[in-house]
Design a protein around this nucleic acid. Structure first.
Length: 897
DNA sequence: TCCTCCCGCCAAGCA
DNA sequence: TGCTTGGCGGGAGGA
């Protein structure tokens, strides 16, 4: 039939052509539906022209074949314009995407109607079982397949000039799925900024343009959040749980944290979970994450999870949802990890390799290449930031409550450390001099404090002298270039964390901050022993400096762990240090001290709760202060919400570290200087302030790099830190106060290479000090490690309460001070890229599947009661970025499904 | 039996 | 107030 009719009359022609009656209806309905179309004003979703799966193509584009006519693929060659069918195809093809979309929708609608009819008929004529068998299997309805269909609709790399909009109604109708399912997909895609929400029912498709940047940012955040350590701790806890079948620990956790569960709806969103899930892969080496561990970490397990299996199951379900979408994106692939305890489902990262964080500058430099931002008026960096995390700011803060349990676990570990026998340690020449952290820390004190207090309060300097804790041989500060860009190491901590009061000292020259731990007996303003206070996280805002300093300390403490993340030319000075005014204030520390003093360590959580009320006001102010500048009123509003939410949801955690709270509220950089010049500071010793603590629950402020603060953040990142982030991290701990292992290390662990990270000590860890100190001394003696001076010993003993403040004990011969070498060349410092280090020191390179891989496993040779970290490993090869982890390795079988 | 994850209820949030 | 969004968990299919 040689009919070449224009579109305007095609309907008439179709009317007389029974073979296209469906098309007639379609066009007619197009007009009819014009008023009922929920997205009529929305640019219809363009069809994906390439990389479309056959399945979806087949389903979505019957290609004008009337439903009544079974498709005959080769009946009419598409290139032949001289047949009615091909002509129609050509005409339809020439039509706009909207027309195509409507056509397909109509066809699908008709198909749907037919399906319903068929269903009805089947139900009528078939028995129940038969009907069930006639239904599509679950796999055919899986979210992964649905996601494939969804993705097939849009190009992976859409043209920036042509925005692709997504109408949920349209999608749900075309894909024959419940709206709920589309949300699952969209949420995950949104977390990767493959889509972003514009309005109700409306999303915009970005494709994979932003994926590299997004992944890089996620990796960065994951590193900064020490996901590697979290994974390790969870694994360790899992292992120890085998020896804790009675669940005593869980009961403790439940009783301790049950009332402080994080229940923020937004913090449980699939978006946040997805981001965290991706982070895990990006920071892990090999990039295999078991579902169980991922669930515990990423989904944000709350305190009662162990007791509430159903809750854990729920979160596993969500992980499956996410994993299905990520699998459809070909970012991950399901595998199975077979370890000693059985076969566990896991996922392996198959997405693009994410550049290390040293590419941050590049990232920013190429930020202008980011896909079109939501706002066209913002700067390129902001564009990129928005492109990375365009969603609402409050949604970009990830609540991380999973560590609540980890904190408890670590607390338990600490107890074990206290009672664990010291293991002989092979100390290399380079590390030897740095191993006695406590002596070293003390030794560093004069230099550090001298730098930091130089030109400041003379009183403080005098107090340093009074302390007489350190030898004159100050440990030279490591080269700034050794600092990892994004290192997360925790600095050395006071010898006795249990009784010292940390204040932050900035280091104007190096741009680092140090924590000064005040001995209560010497602090005139402190008269009460306040163990709880000692465990409070340091102000995160000082992270900038802390990080640098921590790296330095780690250079001394740890061994031969190369840093691959930070270029030698990267500046180490922090903005925080540069911007720090030399002010004086004791409000923060004093308040902290007073608050902590008033709080029994045994009732820390209650203390925190009681403090919530008093902190609300100031916290709100502080959070607002922390709020980065936003680019729009909407962003402001969102950020306000973010802060508010953070305030509301983390205030219970804030109190755990009231000092941290105060510092955070008052903006740490200022506080640091305020504190450092505090009069009457009986400086016991100065140590690098621990940077990011391991909160049991914290927010991952992905937006900190996205909403107008990218420049600032990036600048800080160059210094190896983004204080904004860490400020956010400081939020919350529920019930247990995290304490970096560095504190332990300072006390005694150097010989054992305790990782400076992830060791969280509870207030009742005071008792650990003596034991640890003894161990340290013993170990130091055997290892010829430097020992603290008698002053230091007295100080320490006073700290730990073994002797009254005024009592002095003579220095033991073994405690004679040994000059501390400044050698640090061979001493590794923590890397900012935990995954790299983990891969280098803890795990083999990602193996080919299936094959055995080594998984970190926190097992000690001595059994569960032996502190794993204390299990000396002389080779020093098993080491995390945050320090050494002497972890026996376990073989894992990774198999793909 | 356990793993997966579909399905839909229902509550929070929003216009 | 109705609609959108999405947390959540029961329970069924599949291995």
């Amino acid at each position: 039939m040689d009919l070449y009719l224009p579109l305007t009359v095609i309907d008439k022609w179709i009317v007389v052509h029974p073979g296209f009656n469906i098309t007639i209806v379609l066009f007619i309905d197009m007009q009819e539906n014009e008023h009922s179309e929920p997205c009529k004003n929305v640019l219809k979703t363009p069809l994906k022209q390439a990389s479309t799966s056959q399945l979806v193509l087949t389903e979505r584009q019957p290609d004008c074949q009337p439903l009544t006519t079974p498709p005959k693929p080769k009946e009419t060659p598409p290139a032949d314009p001289w047949t009615p069918t091909s002509n129609l195809k050509m005409l339809i093809s020439a039509a706009s995407p909207e027309i195509r979309s409507r056509e397909q929708r109509r066809q699908l609608s008709d198909s749907s109607s037919e399906v319903l009819q068929t269903k009805h008929c089947l139900q009528e004529h078939l028995l129940g079982d038969e009907y069930e068998k006639s239904q599509p299997s679950r796999k055919e309805k899986s979210l992964g397949l649905l996601c494939h269909k969804f993705l097939a609709r849009y190009p992976d790399y859409p043209s920036p000039s042509q925005k692709s909009y997504i109408c949920l109604d349209e999608v749900t109708e075309e894909l024959h799925v419940e709206r709920r399912r589309i949300y699952d997909i969209v949420n995950v895609l949104e977390s990767l900024h493959m889509v972003s929400r514009l309005a109700r029912n409306r999303y915009v498709w970005h494709g994979r343009h932003n994926l590299p940047q997004t992944l890089q940012a996620l990796k960065k955040v994951g590193e900064e959040n020490k996901y590697i350590q979290q994974i390790q701790m969870i694994k360790r806890r899992e292992y120890e749980h085998e020896f804790d079948p009675d669940g005593e620990r869980n009961e403790e956790m439940a009783s301790s944290f049950g009332s402080t569960s994080v229940n923020g709806r937004k913090y449980k969103s699939l978006r946040v979970m997805s981001q965290k899930f991706v982070m895990l892969f990006l920071v892990s080496t090999p990039q295999i994450v078991s579902l169980e561990v991922a669930a515990k970490i990423l989904i944000g397990e709350d305190q009662l999870e162990d007791l509430d299996k159903s809750k854990f199951k729920t979160k596993i379900r969500r992980l499956y949802d996410i994993a299905n979408v990520l699998s459809s994106l070909k970012l991950i692939k399901k595998v199975h990890v077979t370890e000693e305890r059985g076969r566990k489902p896991a996922f392996k990262w198959t997405g693009p390799e994410v550049l290390p964080n040293t590419q941050d500058i590049k990232l920013e430099a190429t930020s202008t290449t980011c896909s079109p931002p939501i706002s066209e008026s913002i700067t390129s960096k902001e564009q990129c930031s928005k492109a990375l995390f365009p969603s609402k700011g409050k949604q970009n803060f990830t609540r991380h409550s999973s560590l609540i349990k980890l904190v408890k676990s670590i607390e338990n570990d600490r107890r074990k450390i206290q009672s664990a026998p010291t293991s002989p340690v092979k100390i290399s020449a380079s590390t030897y001099q740095s191993l006695p952290v406590f002596p070293n820390t003390i030794a560093q004190f004069p230099a550090i404090t001298k730098h930091q207090l130089e030109g400041q309060s003379k009183t403080a300097e005098e107090m340093q002298m009074k302390c007489a804790l350190s030898s004159p041989e100050a440990v030279p500060k490591p080269e700034p270039s050794q600092q990892p860009a994004l290192s997360q190491p925790l600095g050395a901590c006071p010898a006795s964390h249990s009784s010292v009061s940390p204040v932050i000292l900035p280091h104007p020259q190096s741009g680092v901050s140090y924590a000064i731990y005040l001995h209560p007996s010497q602090a005139h303003t402190v008269t009460t022993y306040s163990p709880g206070f000692m465990l409070q996280p340091l102000p995160c805002a000082s992270v900038t400096g802390m990080k640098s300093s921590n790296s330095k300390i780690l250079n001394i403490i740890t061994t031969e762990e190369g840093d691959t993340q930070r270029g030698p030319d990267e500046p180490t000075k922090s903005l925080a240090a540069e911007e720090r005014p030399e002010t004086k204030s004791e409000t923060s520390s004093q308040r902290c001290l007073k608050r902590s003093q008033a709080l029994p360590e045994s009732n820390l959580i209650k203390r925190r709760k009681s403090d919530e009320e008093s902190l609300d006001t100031s916290l709100g102010e502080s959070t607002k202060n922390e709020k980065p500048p936003s680019n729009s009123s909407q962003t402001n509003h969102e950020m306000d919400n973010v802060q508010e939410e953070r305030q509301n949801e983390t205030k219970t955690d804030q109190n755990i570290a009231s000092c941290c709270d105060q510092c955070t509220k008052e903006n740490i950089p200022e506080d640091e200087d305020k504190i450092k010049t505090k009069q009457d500071i009986p400086v016991a010793f100065a140590i690098p302030a621990p940077e990011t603590f391991f909160p049991s629950g914290y927010l991952i402020p992905l937006t900190h790099c996205t909403h107008g603060t990218k420049a600032e953040c990036s600048t800080k990142e160059k210094a190896g830190v983004c204080s904004v982030q860490h400020t956010a991290y400081s939020s919350p701990i529920t019930g247990v106060i995290p304490m970096p292992a560095s504190e332990l290390k300072t006390v005694n662990i150097p010989a054992f290479h305790i990782t400076p990270l992830n060791i969280m000590l509870s207030p009742n860890s005071i008792a650990a000090a003596p034991v640890l100190s003894n161990s340290c001394l013993s170990s130091s003696s055997t290892s010829s490690a430097p020992n603290p001076s008698s002053s230091a010993l007295n100080f320490m003993l006073q700290h730990i309460g073994l002797i009254p403040a005024g009592v002095q004990v003579p220095a033991s011969p073994v405690l004679q001070h040994v000059p501390v070498s400044s050698q640090s060349e061979n001493i590794s410092h923590s890397s900012g890229s935990t995954n790299v280090q983990e891969g280098k020191f803890l795990q083999p390179k990602e193996p080919q599947e299936p094959q055995a891989v080594t998984e970190n496993f926190f097992r000690t040779p001595g059994g569960p009661n032996t502190e794993p970290a204390l299990s000396a490993n002389s080779d020093g090869t098993q080491r995390t970025s945050q320090g050494t982890l002497y972890i026996p390795q376990r073989k894992l079988e990774v198999s793909e499904d």
